[in-house]
Structures are given as C-alpha cells and as structure tokens.
C-alpha cells in the first residue's frame, strides 16, 4: 500500500527488508499465506540474485553490496518493469544503513525499510527519519489487550529525551563508555555491568551514593534485569537511566512507567521518530478483531499518532 501510494506521488523509491518479505508462505508457519510485494518500474530493491531470478523480474544489477545473508549475498537491483518480488536485504542495521545510503546515491528519493518480527534496531534515529509501528491481533485476543501492548511499545519508543544540559555534559558523550554520574562527576563502569549486574553489584559500584542527581548512562543494551536490580537503590531519590535511544532498551515484563513509579526513570539521548501506527486486525489461522474498535482502542491509548488499517474498507491515504 505504501509503495503504491508513494508511486502515485511520482517518487523514486528504494526498498529494503531486514527480514524476508514477499515470500509465498510465512517462515514460521507455512500454512500462512503472505501477500506479494508489488513494486513499480524503476524501484531500487536490495535483495539476493536468486530471489530476483526467481521472481522473473526484468532488472539490472547496480551494486553488489557484498553483504551476506542466509539467503545469499545482497545486491541492489533496479526493476525495469513492475514486478512482484521477494525481498531479503541486509540483516543488520548497519548493513541496511549502507544499502539505504547506496540507494540514495543511485537516485532514490525515499527508502523504505521493512522491519521484521520484534526487530527494532532499524527504527533507531540514526537509521530512520520516520517510523511506522506495526501491531495487530496476533498480540492478543481482544482489542483492549492489543491496545495495551501497543501502548507499552509506543511508550518505550517515545521516552523523554534527556534535557538536563548539566547531566548531558557530564555524560562525556562520544566515549561510548558506561558511566555512573553523580554530583562529584562521572565514574566509568565495565561495559558488561548493565548486562549482568545484581543489586549488590550496583551497590558496590556506588549506585546509591549519587542521591537525587545519580544517573547511569548505558550506551549499549539496557536489559530489564538491570532496571529491576536498581529498584532497591532508589532511596532517597530517583535514579535515572539514560540510554542512547529506545531500541537499546529491552523490556519484556514491565513498562517504562512501571519502573518510573518505582523510582527508576528511563530517558534517552535520541528518540525514535514514530509517526504512525498500522494495525492488522487479523491473526492468521486464529482470530479476527473488529478493525474500527481496535483502531479506536489504540488511538485512545496512543494519542497524537494516526492509526491506520490499510486493508479496511474505510481506509484512505493520508494527505
């Protein structure tokens, strides 16, 4: 849908998938049929030579990226005529960034990066100028349940940006080092500490000494176990955990708000640019939710973000 709408605007497009899209059946469950990806003539596509040949699309190879995937090495092709094509581009965020840069160099005005199951790295602000979050009935059995899970994901994506200039200065940005920042300055910590730390480890690292001004800067992964281990150390004031961006925070159980209510406040240096939410009310081979009710439930919980179901009869392209 997005492709055809942008084609209608006469834009030269690039298309990348960090997963595998346009295949006939789902990789997890072959009983689930997947829709084809129809690309207009002139589209630049990052995929493998085998998949292009399989699609029988008329195309020219422009760049061999040298990026290897389980389905072959990724090249950038220009489609000479409209075609249905299977897209399996670079798997890593850096690979996708490399391919996107090459496409822009080759004349693409806009590059669409299709995500994959639970994959968020390409939504990082240094990668994507705008993000569409996709959600749907596969996450729950009621409209309200899906909306609640979606709200948690949006809350994470739109965490507050650290605006304390004094603290930003103390973070000594650019060093890529894990830091504990208190009133007396910044103390470097082992990069693996957030991954493995218990409350005791963090107490020994001095987490409780910073008082109200204490903050952890974690440039890498922020696992949920780290946030949970910090909770007993929040007295007398809240502890701040500053991540590079939301894609580096991994919460399975609780929401950022839940940790905030317990004194562990999550902030980011750069937020993801979430512009819209797309919904699929159908859980394949399982159940179907009411599309208007689902959109309404999500809109109530995620105000300010347009919610679309591109397959709904009442869908119309945004202006």
């Amino acid at each position: 849908m997005l492709l055809s709408e942008l084609e209608g605007q006469g834009q030269h497009l690039g298309l990348i998938s960090i997963g595998y899209d346009g295949e006939r059946t789902d990789s997890l469950n072959p009983l689930i049929l997947k829709p084809p990806i129809r690309c207009p003539a002139g589209t630049l596509v990052a995929t493998t030579d085998t998949l292009v040949r399989r699609s029988k699309a008329a195309s020219e190879t422009l760049v061999d990226t040298g990026l290897r995937t389980p389905l072959g090495t990724v090249s950038i092709f220009r489609l000479m005529s409209p075609a249905e094509i299977e897209v399996a581009g670079p798997s890593s965020a850096s690979g996708a960034q490399e391919a996107a840069a090459a496409m822009l160099e080759l004349g693409a005005e806009r590059v669409i990066v299709d995500g994959s199951i639970d994959r968020r790295a390409t939504a990082a602000p240094e990668m994507a100028e705008a993000v569409i979050t996709s959600t749907g009935a596969v996450l729950g059995s009621s409209e309200e349940e899906v909306a609640a899970i979606t709200e948690k994901a949006i809350e994470l994506s739109t965490l507050p940006v650290l605006d304390d200039r004094r603290l930003r200065d103390r973070l000594n940005l650019g060093e890529g080092c894990c830091l504990l920042v208190g009133p007396d300055g910044a103390k470097p910590l082992p990069p693996t500490l957030p991954l493995t730390a218990s409350t005791r480890d963090l107490r020994e690292a001095g987490a409780f000494e910073g008082g109200r001004d204490a903050a952890f800067y974690v440039p890498g992964s922020v696992p949920e176990s780290f946030l949970a281990a910090l909770i007993p150390l929040v007295t007398p004031g809240p502890l701040k955990v500053v991540a590079e961006n939301p894609t580096r925070i991994f919460l399975r159980e609780r929401s950022p708000r839940w940790y905030g209510e317990r004194g562990v406040r999550l902030e980011v240096l750069n937020r993801a640019e979430v512009r819209a939410i797309s919904v699929n009310p159908v859980a394949p081979l399982s159940h179907e939710l009411d599309s208007p009710a689902l959109r309404e439930a999500i809109s109530c919980r995620c105000p300010g973000l347009p919610v679309f179901d591109v397959a709904a009869p009442d869908y119309s392209a945004p202006a």
């Binding site: 960090i18 997963g19 990789s27 389980p70 389905l71 399996a88 798997s91 850096s94 994959r119 990069p191």
Partner: peptide, 29 residues
C-alpha cells in the same frame, strides 16, 4: 545490535524449526 558489535559478530542459530528463511527473518547470519 544495541551493543554495537553486530558487524563484528557472526550470529548463528540452530534448532529443529530453524530454517535459512527463518534465520534471515530473525536477523541471523
């Protein structure tokens, strides 16, 4: 990815339901 070592690390998964297509979908090499 978040740790910044994805380009320097070969990521491999294995198991009864793992296929090359699924590995690609999940971001593995």
């Amino acid at each position: 990815e978040a740790q910044g070592i994805r380009s320097d690390t070969v990521l491999v998964c294995g198991g009864p339901r793992i296929s090359e297509e699924l590995a690609k979908e999940l971001g593995y090499d």
